[in-house]
Amino acid sequence: MLHYAVVFFVIALIAAVFGFTGIAAGAAQIAKILFFIFLVVFIITLFMGVVGR
């Protein structure tokens, strides 16, 4: 999931360089959402690993 967030971030950067601001904003928003989902899943997994011991 973090991989996809990085991919969309790179797409947003490339689109911004070429002047496609709408596409850049959309890709950046998708990257941000995927990153926060990754953080939530990571924290839940980390917590479950600590509690499971």
Rank of each mutant, 00 (worst) to 15 (best):
A25E: 08
A15D: 02
A24C: 05
L39C: 09
F9Y: 11
I14A: 12
A27G: 02
H3S: 15
Q29H: 05
L13C: 09
A16S: 05
I33H: 03
A5K: 08
G26H: 10
F35R: 02
G19T: 04
I14W: 07
F35K: 00
I14D: 05
A15Y: 01
G52K: 04
F9I: 07
G19W: 05
V40I: 14
I11K: 00
L46T: 14
H3D: 01
V50C: 10
Q29M: 06
A5G: 07
L13V: 04
I44T: 14
L13T: 06
T45N: 15
T45C: 04
K32C: 04
I44F: 13
F35S: 02
L2W: 14
V41Y: 11
I23A: 02
V40Y: 07
G52A: 14
V7M: 09
A16P: 10
G49V: 01
V50Q: 08
L2F: 13
M48S: 13
F35W: 10
V17T: 00
V7R: 14
Y4G: 12
L2E: 08
L46H: 14
I11D: 00
Q29N: 11
M1T: 07
I33M: 12
A15H: 03
F20H: 11
G26R: 14
G49T: 09
F42E: 12
G26V: 09
F8G: 00
L46D: 09
L46R: 14
I14V: 11
I11R: 03
I14S: 10
